[in-house]
């Protein structure tokens, strides 16, 4: 028996909105630790990792590890029927082939019950090994979304260059070129937060201090990498989950774009960098 109740139903809705365009069918893994998903997009360029820890749920019960195959489009259709302030409960039997979504409004006078047929998805478990990243940039998620959107009207790819003081986004296309540089605004906050990160492990608090246009950079070594904007734009659908976005970059490694979900977990997007000879291939 699996049962999980989340008070802020909007979180689940937002999470799903942010990944449903990348992944169509995926297995959700329900364990005692929490509710997780890892899946590649259909073109195998990016990977989504979602973690909603059991502690973040209002109520969580998982007797035996269950894998639930879901079509994310259908799941999103059902979740759209929930109001933003509804409480959402997910339920599934160990051997069942359906998952139930139950929506309760705050006044507790309306209860909706949706059942969705599960899928049997034969796929492998994937993971990106954890590494130390050479550069970590933290910035306003709105700002990041804006940059990606603006640049994608000029070109297909963005080159992200991180230096000690700034992060520079560059693109070029048929109509011209664009450069956006965000300077580092303060260094105290970032460090403070980084300390916290190390202390609490995965559990990171969303600090109020790095609001607005603030850009924090933690750098071991300058990094310059190129990515397809198409995917970054897609990742930005998670903007509403968190005020800040964290980008982690290392030479010849995928970028990690992380949005924290307060008190619950995170959505992480991994995107493979573009390599030179591949350019002709993709365009």
């Amino acid at each position: 028996m699996f049962e999980a109740r989340i008070l802020q139903g909007s979180i689940l809705k937002k999470v799903l909105e942010s990944i449903k365009d990348l992944v169509t069918d995926a297995n959700f893994e329900c364990t005692a630790n929490g509710f997780a998903l890892q899946a590649m997009d259909s073109s195998h360029v990016s990977l989504v990792a979602l973690m909603l820890r059991s502690t973040g749920f209002d109520h969580y019960r998982c007797d035996r590890d269950v894998t639930m195959g879901m079509n994310l489009l259908n799941m999103s259709k059902m979740l759209k029927c929930a109001d933003n302030d509804d409480t959402i409960t997910m339920k599934a039997d160990d051997a069942g082939d359906v998952v139930t979504f139950m929506f309760e409004n705050p006044k507790a006078d309306k209860i909706s019950d949706f059942q969705m047929k599960l899928m049997d998805i034969d796929t492998e478990h994937l993971g990106i090994p954890d590494t130390e990243y050479e550069a970590t940039v933290k910035m306003s998620s709105n700002e990041f979304q804006r940059i990606c959107r603006d640049l994608s009207s000029i070109g297909d790819t963005v080159t992200i260059a991180v230096t000690k003081d700034s992060v520079k986004f560059t693109t070029s296309g048929d109509i011209g070129e664009a450069n956006i540089t965000c300077r580092r605004t303060s260094d105290g906050d970032m460090k403070e937060e980084k300390v916290k990160t190390e202390e609490d492990g995965e559990k990171v608090h969303n600090t109020k201090s790095s609001e607005g246009q603030n850009v924090d950079i933690d750098l071991q070594e300058p990094v310059t990498l190129t990515f397809a904007l198409r995917y970054l734009n897609s990742f930005c659908k998670a903007t509403s989950l968190c005020e800040n976005v964290r980008l982690q970059l290392s030479k010849e490694l995928p970028v990690v774009v992380q949005y924290l979900i307060e008190d619950m977990g995170y959505v992480r997007f991994y995107l493979a960098p573009k390599i030179e000879e591949e350019d002709a291939d993709e365009s």
């Binding site: 069918d25 590649m40 073109s43 195998h44 360029v45 990016s46 990977l47 195959g69 899928m119 049997d120 998805i121 034969d122 796929t123 492998e124 994937l126 993971g127 990106i128 090994p129 490694l253 995928p254 991994y270 995107l271 493979a272 573009k274 390599i275 000879e277 591949e278 291939d281 993709e282």
Partner: peptide, 19 residues
């Protein structure tokens, strides 16, 4: 019931080089 095969890691450019 569907199958989502995992591409082999030799494939250039994809995330499979890292995953």
């Amino acid at each position: 019931s569907i199958a989502l095969p995992t591409p082999s890691s030799t494939l250039a450019g994809g995330i499979m080089r890292f995953a």
